[in-house]
Simulated assay, not measured.
Amino acid sequence: MPSLPSLPAVPSSSVPAVVSALRAAGCVFAEDEAELLLATARTPEELAAMVDRRTAGLPLEHVLGWAEFHGLRIAVEPGVFVPRRRTEFLVDQALAQAPDARVVVDLCCGSGALAAALAGALGAVEVHAADIDPAAVRCARRNLAPYDGRAHAGDLFDALPAALRGRVGILAANVPYVPSAELAFLPAEARDHEPPAALDGGADGLDVLRRVAAGAPEWLAPGGCLLTETGEHQARAAVEAFTDAGLTTRLAVSEELHAHVVIGVRPCRRTTGV
């Protein structure tokens, strides 16, 4: 996907004032954020409005209208889940596991960042995304347009075209995995500005993950893989859910990104001669 245009029409003399306002609001990376806001705003008035939104607590990505993810600028609308940089590890694991995949599906897609990143890396692939949130589906359609991808509205596999059954090479599912009782402890940017359905994973955080794991074998091609992110303390139970679904399962961990990705592969059926 091509980079979004930068229109740095606001004078650089505005930098100190913007940094000061962001610092006062508690933004840890005030200098970096100021540079992005100044590069995006087209007029001093637009810059002032963007700074006001950011200091009021709106996620930076919602203020800018995009998030950087796996070398791409992903369009992100207000109210849509913001892709996390740690989830780039999931993309890398998918590409390593199935470098020749020709059909890619992104469940619980949010902005469609996973589907866009995979399509951008794999080249000519059939790419689909699905989410239960209409705003997310609209956003995903925008991000997948350069790859002729399709985004579908609906609940998990119910949203997908039936013709995909048994054909999916990579099934990426960045499911919600925060336990319900822990939602109140999330940073305000997520808690107040992202849809609860994109965060709340149920009592132990694994409700949606278990549903995806149980349904995946029907949709995966032989040798196709399912990948999902989970929390460190949930990893063992998540691996068990994949294994119980009949997938050959392993856990990949990035200490640097604090990322835990469960990978399940549909076994290839063996044929015996007569």
Rank of each mutant, 00 (worst) to 15 (best):
S13Q: 13
P16Y: 12
V18T: 08
L22M: 08
A24T: 13
V28C: 10
E35Q: 14
P44R: 11
E45K: 11
A48I: 05
D52Q: 15
D52R: 15
T55I: 13
T55Q: 03
A56G: 07
P59Y: 14
L64A: 10
H70K: 07
G71E: 02
R73K: 09
I74N: 02
G79D: 04
F81R: 02
V82P: 00
P83Y: 12
R84L: 12
F89G: 01
L95A: 00
C109A: 14
G123V: 00
E126G: 06
I132P: 00
D133E: 11
A140W: 01
R141K: 15
R141A: 08
R142G: 09
N143D: 03
G154W: 10
F157Q: 06
P161A: 04
A163R: 14
R167D: 03
G169K: 10
A173F: 06
N174K: 06
N174F: 01
Y177R: 06
Y177M: 13
V178R: 07
A181L: 03
D192N: 10
H193V: 08
H193Q: 03
E194L: 06
P195T: 11
A198I: 09
L199N: 02
A203C: 02
D207C: 08
D207R: 13
L209C: 12
A213Y: 06
G215Y: 07
L220S: 02
C225H: 09
T228I: 07
T228W: 01
G231L: 06
H233W: 07
A237P: 01
T243A: 15
D244R: 09
G246A: 12
T248E: 12
T248C: 04
T249F: 08
S254P: 01
E255T: 10
E256T: 12
V265K: 04
R266C: 03
R270Y: 02
T272Q: 05
